[in-house]
Nucleic acid binder design. Structure first.
Lengths: 230, 230
DNA sequence: CTCCGCAATGATGTATCCAATCGACCATCG
DNA sequence: CGATGGTCGATTGGATACATCATTGCGGAG
């Protein structure tokens, strides 16, 4: 586990260019490409393409695909091929409900470990988001904001689970962000500041409530935009 | 995903003896062996052993190990080997805290779909557990009881996540069960009957509370027996 | 006697090759 | 003209062979 390339949260993955890490290296790069939106959900992934592109044989590619399949980023069908995972509205809704329940828990683990300087940084990120120019910048800041809230505690399963959920829903979060911006919805920023405030006061229960509400509100917005899932 | 062999919950995996499923077949059998306790946590797993035992080459074995690693049942170290995953007390505690938050959610999804006959079956299982003779029988009944509570709703991520957590903690649940029985602790059965009762009344909130308390109580017992983790 | 270093051994990681399977196109029949 | 069957191409799955790395045991130096 913990093979996810998350510079913000995992200090591991120092130099994966040694022997015995070709699969992991390919997985890392493919994961980044998918999260960056270079591959759309449903896009076909050909083993030989990846192999050529990374100067490796198809074997490590297959391992990489297995890893990403386990993370929910890729869908594998035997004897047929691999596609970038695509979510139904029901599945995405499920993921948000899970997040709504466990991210507050992860936050609770972390708040006592966040220094005043850490909280200042969170505040800065929240402000930068309000002034963010385009969708990609907002997405990156939003991800950094939330994952920074979770970076201090040395949890394993909980953090990995949350990361997997974030990664799996990344593409759809991109789509929602576009909608929110076009509708001029500013609640997101309000909630971020409420969250920072609760964290600063070490108010665990209130921080949990705000975060759960933050996620729930986004989930309820999903139902209003089923077109995102085709 | 959904490659876990769970006869109670997944009706899939019809005949995986075709081409393109060797890895999945090996993973299924190895998973069952680990869950049955045939491999202890920390036990070394040699690729060639498995290959010979299943009449396959090492390649599908590696795929199987990757799958089980993703499920948290196996720990892989590059250029070194594979071991049956072992949990620290902190990790196990984390898993129980996650279960405490999301299993009630999964239960909530299911209760409206459980027929009176289903509830009767749950009641029967709870009774059988009280009269169970040995640890293995109790473990099997307990697993069937809880997973039956979750079998009806067509959730994907949520059910898979819960299953993964159950599988990862299986070995330690076996150890706790031994402790509970030696101490004559009967609270488990009381809680099971309370849960059945709440389900029968379609009382979602009460069922959630009972289930969360059930899991929480077990988690708090963990702290009293750190010796299980060596 | 203990500790460090080296070499042999065993296991894992990777590349190449061959077989099995799936999808698409085309021909044929109803 | 539409549907069904077969064949061909492309792609994936698996086995064998070789390169690489980690570990273990032995030997020598301190």
């Amino acid at each position: 586990m913990n093979t996810m390339a998350q510079p913000e949260m995992s200090a591991a993955t120092p130099e994966p260019l040694a022997h015995g890490a070709a699969g992991a290296r390919i997985a890392t790069r493919l994961r980044e490409a998918i999260l960056a939106g270079e591959y759309a959900p449903g896009a076909r992934i050909r083993q030989e393409d990846l192999a050529d592109r990374h100067g490796a044989s198809r074997l490590p590619v297959r391992e990489a695909l297995r890893m990403l399949e386990a993370e929910g980023l890729v869908t594998l069908v035997a004897n047929t091929g691999a596609w970038v995972a695509r979510l139904s509205h029901a599945e995405c809704d499920e993921m948000y409900q899970i997040r709504e329940r466990i991210e507050p828990l992860l936050l609770r683990y972390n708040i006592p470990l966040l220094s005043p300087a850490d909280v200042d940084e969170l505040d800065r990120l929240a402000g930068a988001m309000e002034r963010s120019a385009d969708v990609e910048e907002f997405l990156a800041l939003d991800r950094e904001f939330h994952l920074s809230c979770y970076a201090k505690a040395e949890t394993t399963v909980l953090r990995d689970t949350v990361l997997r959920l974030w990664n799996s829903t990344q593409h759809y979060r991109r789509a929602f962000t576009r909608v929110f911006r076009s509708e001029g919805d500013l609640s997101v920023h309000h909630e971020h500041h409420l969250l920072v405030s609760a964290i600063r006061r070490d108010d665990l229960d209130e921080a949990e409530r705000v975060l759960a509400g933050h996620i729930r509100r986004t989930r309820l917005e999903l139902a209003r935009h089923p077109d995102v899932f085709e």
